[in-house]
Design a binder for these strands. Structure first.
Length: 269
DNA sequence: CTGAGATCCTGTCTGC
DNA sequence: TGCAGACAGGATCTCA
């Protein structure tokens, strides 16, 4: 289940397919977050993959003509199998056939999406995204300025992909704990020092997760289909009523904007 | 414009 | 064991 680090890991694992040709595609279920366009198969068949990159939580295939924009949603994952293998799973929605491999998109809840476009940069899913969290554009000054007019809580704010991309529900709690900021705090009340720590914490948490192979909780399937995964050491997420690793206070669970949120009552002011 | 709540979908877990 | 209800890592949409 993907947040930015899982998407990054998946994207990296697809790199061997750069320079390869997509021979054909089979679609078992067109009803993802948006219905897959009629011409999708035609648009991508017999195209060479020039590069595979990531923007926010999207994987972008730059083809010899056009782009594929893929989002894994809440439950999407990709696996790679030999062309002659016959093992399919429930919810295998899309199968890309290459010369000797197939790339399979599986997504239980179908919150993921896939589009073909001639212009990825201006695509409606891409054009309004905020800065990459690990880029220089995401810094203290930027966060301070953009936060001045927002009255939502700070946790909801950093999960807004227009503010900064890639921060999901887990990393939002973890980053706020690391920065010692209470997730309930109203965004325009945080000061410059808070912004400085928060930017640093978001970058650090994401970097660590990426370096660990991009996994967080529960099972994350590698592209080879194996279930091997690392578990990042989460300090607050999922630790309701357990001891804070920093001050030995108790971790609280609350619901903010309909999402589970965990924080330490004592550390996070 | 903002922000809160509903919503898409399937599977798993908890409590009665 | 059955069954209802809550919940799950996303993000758009609808409405006030």
């Amino acid at each position: 289940m993907p947040e930015l680090p899982e998407v990054e890991t998946t994207m990296s694992a697809l790199q061997p397919f750069v320079e390869k040709k997509i021979v054909s595609v089979d679609i078992n279920n067109r009803h993802l977050r948006w219905k897959i366009e009629k011409d999708f198969e035609k648009n991508i068949s017999n195209k060479k993959i020039i590069s595979i990159t990531r923007r926010a939580k999207y994987i972008i295939f730059n083809l010899s003509d056009g782009f594929i924009i893929l989002h894994l949603g809440m439950s999407g994952n990709i696996r790679i199998q030999d062309l002659n293998s016959n093992t399919y799973k429930k919810h295998d929605h899309i199968i890309f056939y290459l010369k000797d491999k197939k790339i399979i998109y599986n997504d239980i809840r179908r919150f993921g999406s896939i589009h073909f476009t001639n212009n990825a940069k201006d695509h409606f899913l891409i054009k309004n995204l905020g800065p990459e969290p690990l880029s220089k554009d995401f810094n203290k000054k930027y966060l301070f300025n953009i936060s001045r007019n927002s009255k939502t809580n700070i946790k909801n704010f950093i999960m807004n992909q227009k503010v900064v991309v890639g921060v999901g529900n887990i990393y939002a709690s973890e980053a706020l704990f690391d920065a010692r900021i209470n997730p309930n705090n109203i965004t325009n009340s945080i000061n410059e020092e808070d912004c400085k720590r928060l930017v640093k914490s978001i970058k650090n948490i994401l970097k660590i997760a990426i370096n660990m192979g991009g996994t967080t909780l529960k099972d994350f399937y590698s592209v080879d289909g194996s279930e091997g995964y690392f578990k990042i050491k989460l300090k607050v997420y999922g630790r309701e009523n357990e001891k804070c690793k920093s001050c030995r206070g108790v971790i609280k669970k609350i619901v903010l904007n309909q999402r589970s949120t965990f924080y330490c009552l004592d550390c996070q002011k």
